[in-house]
Design a protein around this nucleic acid. Sequence first.
RNA 1: GCCGGAGUGGCGGAAUUGGCAUACGCGGCGGAUUCAAAAUCCGCUGACUUUCGGGUCUUGUGGGUUCGAGUCCCACCUCCGGUACCA
Length: 804
Amino acid sequence: MGYKPQEIEPRWQAHWNQHQLFRAGIRSDLPKYYVLDMFPYPSGSGLHVGHTEGYTASDIIARHRRMKGFDVLHPMGFDAFGLPAEQYAIEKGVHPEVSTRENIETFSKQLRAMGYSYDWDRQFSTSDPTYYHWTQWIFLKLLEHDLAFQEEAMVNWCPELGTVLANDEVIDGKSERGGYDVVRQPMKQWMLRITAFADRLLEGLDEVDFPESIKSMQRDRIGRSEGADATFDIVDSDLKMEIFTTRPDTLFGSTFCVLSPEHPFVSKLTDAPHQQAVEAYCQEAARKSDIERSGTEAGKTGVFTGAHAINPCTGDSMPIWVADYVLMGYGTGAIMCVPGHDQRDWDFATTFKLPIVEVVAGGDVAVEAYVGEGTHVNSGFLDGLDKEQAISASIDWLEQKKIGKRIVRYRLRDWIFARQRYWGEPVPVVIDDEGKAHPLPESALPLELPHLDDFAPTGTGKSPLERAQQWSQTEVPGSGAPARRELDTMPGSAGSSAYFLRFIDPKNDQALVDPQLAKRWMPVDLYLGGAEHAVGHLLYSRFWTKFLHDIGVCPVDEPYAKLVNQGMILGEDHRKMSKRFGNVVDPLDVIAEQGADSLRVYEMFMGPIEADKPWSTGGLMGARRFLDRVWRLFFDQDDQLHGTLSAQATDDQMRILHRTIDKVDRDTEGLRFNTAIAQMMTFVNELNPLETRPRAILEPFCLVLAPYAPHLAEELWSALGHDESLMWEEFPQADPHWLEQELVEVPVQVNGKVRSKIEVAVDIGQEQIQQQVLADSRVQEYTEGKEIVKFVWVPGRMVNLVVR
RNA sequence: GCCGGAGUGGCGGAAUUGGCAUACGCGGCGGAUUCAAAAUCCGCUGACUUUCGGGUCUUGUGGGUUCGAGUCCCACCUCCGGUACCA
């Protein structure tokens, strides 16, 4: 009796599956819409209700768009390679091939139980050879265009995980996975030249519809800054020291220089009396973790080298110090210090009693550095100029003297593209006896990952693939000279950097994607996922897209037209959902008790999609009760359809129906799912007490409900006598006639306070309403004996009288 | 510190262009139904006050603009996210 989701839902899921109702690309006459979820890591713990929030939102959009006449591409797959999957496998003592397969099964089962309208035929995992074939192919293309290269680089080495990590896999000097110590260490690595795309990645942000916070995070990561390089002579040395500054206008105020401890000049410049102290300092700096070095609370440390550089403006000699607040990885690893106008330099100068000179007026350099605007003083030919003029004039001067030039630098580093781990895409390269790298020919792809029984990290900096002797020993393509395969694998972020292209044409064994199909579907119209990928994944995939665009593979150079970050679902206790707190909610449990439609409706009703929201069992029950009430709108106590189906719809019924259609349509389009559902609840509440249930009202409502509670909607639709699924029915259109009201009740304010309400025709004129308002007895109480200064009538909204 | 976002009932949240603050849901209270309970249905539910007509106050705090401010402007406080010596 009554609404039984457990019985209804599997039946409709089977029906959709059987009739392949969500296949994309079969209606090429319709406009396209590509809606994509950030695909999940198939972890061992399965999906929780945080994942299903985003997936439900995108599914509602997909279903709504289909009903609005779009050919919708809505695919799903699994990001299975990489550290999380491998760590899980190690912890459980299972081979990652096995655990990945099992986890994907669990995830698929959960996703299917939610009734998502994915085109499952397009599903793949990044660990499928038929997929990573193309990840490897892109790598070969990058290599061909000199965007992939090997370099001895300072990397984040995690001894416990036995691999290098990307910067965003390191948090506070610990690994993101497991929280193990990470040390800086030089290693020869494959790198991708993402820095070559820095400006385009920056400019592209202006064209896309991303949350402002994401854009600003990406801009910060790219960290473009304009300035100048300048070369300083060194006293009693042939060496010339190159520094980078964004404030060349303050050259006259530079009183000392600082080298990074890793700077090659440190050992060359340090004189005998200072040697011991400098060496000790550099060793200490190398030992310290990044977090210790950058700790602002630590204050400034440093040692004098005994050497001096010459200030090209003043001719003064400036002591050269070594300090770890200067980083080797940015700029030239050497800076000129202007303590008057840079707080870090000011702190340093104060600590070590170095001279401070004011060159920009406006502050008090005896108290703190002055970084604001101002007129230049003590600056020779720059005196009297403002900041902008002085920067420009000083660079001109440097260029004229051939001791410097204008330059743009970025904080963004090249992408370290190698992990000393087993579970990743093999790099399609062989190394000959002289250590030279040779790419494999495209025909050799995919280079399959060999099966290894012992896949644990070696911990030595070598890849576990070293153990695959047979696989590793090979020859140089073409020449036949002996060689070994590259043993490092690609990082986890490789597989997710172009997957949206592969979903368009997942079975193509001749190309990453057919160009015609790519043209049809790109870009992704709506991309939904968590904000944790704000920088890493999004920057990497934007980079690859730009590259693929340049070589003619991808028709667009920005992959995602619109990005939305769903918020986090917190536990009922308002804390982050985590096993540790025991507050994790499994969608399968919810589905078993209340049904997938209740879960879908509840999660969308919780609040704005982008906000963090706490789970509430009571709230879930509310969603269930709403669907129960929908059921009873259609059926009587014996589960028989209401006998009043053939009744004529009343004007009231038509008005509430069309208001609902209009609001749900617009709110869905704008991803305001919570208010769309509130409107459907209002519809049910208002319709409930009315005596008749005309088909003309129930049928359109069924369609309006369908994107949100698809199983229930199908069941009701079929009960109304339809043989076909409502999936491709047209979404109802709101008739403007029923949206307009003839009479409205408007509040009447006197001096801004509501004192009365009157009912008037919407289109009443100023004079008539004034007459009616003044005739109102409540209004007269407040106006008696007073002068009416002003009469405000906002048509259809309200009246305000100003009296004195 | 800097950048981004947010502060509205007991709780989640709503509010077109500046126009009835608290929609919708949860929770609570009362009632109907029931042998009883669950479920369901109906009503009430921001605070204070009241002669039960109403009155006063209320959207983090303090100012301002306006006939009118949750919404706009200025200053500040708190929370969340990001970032952290990038010269």
